[in-house]
């Protein structure tokens, strides 16, 4: 069955590349200009009526974001993944929120986490997960978590030793703990 889907897509998008094919599972890569068209073709002509997920991978080494739309054809029990590379700088991807209401939430998240813009999504830019975030979108590969934490929350002093007994002693005073007091009484 998935063969039929593959053949159909190959006829319409001759430049597509096959990423993975197995029982009832097909992953293809298309050109960025053909991405939205491929997703819509899968919905209207091939029965992939459910959108499961829109995901992004930061391919910083290629200067691109890899967008992946995961679709499901429930009647045939098939999963179709359509991937495309979009330039990383000022990344703009066609929105599908008018076709699937669920796409709106996925796109809002990708806008916040990667800075990918989906023109046509009426709720783009509305706060979703990161209310009031002003920094670089945090899921980008060049966002340094440790550096951000240091900058925002200050330098954290490393422990001088790793022995927990000694560490507790440093912090609360070893002989102030109940166990310590008992030991002192024994002496």
């Amino acid at each position: 069955m998935i063969d039929k889907v593959k053949k159909e897509l190959e006829i319409r998008f001759p430049l597509l590349k096959l990423v993975r094919e197995q029982h009832n599972y097909l992953h293809i890569k298309v050109d960025k200009a053909a991405a939205a068209d491929a997703v819509l073709t899968a919905k209207t002509s091939l029965g992939f009526t459910t959108l499961q997920l829109i995901s992004a991978v930061d391919r910083i080494e290629n200067g691109a974001f890899q967008l992946t739309w995961i679709l499901e054809n429930y009647d045939e029990q098939e999963i179709l993944l359509i991937s495309a590379y979009f330039p990383r700088k000022n990344c703009v991807v066609p929105s599908l929120s008018q076709i699937w209401p669920a796409a709106s939430a996925f796109e809002r998240e990708l806008f916040e986490m990667f800075g990918i813009s989906f023109p046509g999504n009426p709720r783009e830019g509305e706060d979703f997960l990161l209310e009031g975030w002003k920094d670089m979108p945090p899921m980008r590969r060049d966002f340094e978590t440790e550096e951000y934490a240091r900058r925002t929350f200050g330098e954290r002093q490393p422990r001088e030793h790793t022995d927990p007994r000694q560490y507790i002693g440093d912090v609360v005073g070893e002989w102030n703990t109940p166990m310590g007091r008992n030991r002192e009484e024994e002496k």
Partner: peptide, 13 residues
């Protein structure tokens, strides 16, 4: 719906 009270950055971690 407002979310974000529980974001622990698992996917980044």
């Amino acid at each position: 719906t407002h979310v974000g009270y529980l974001h622990r950055g698992f996917e980044k971690l």
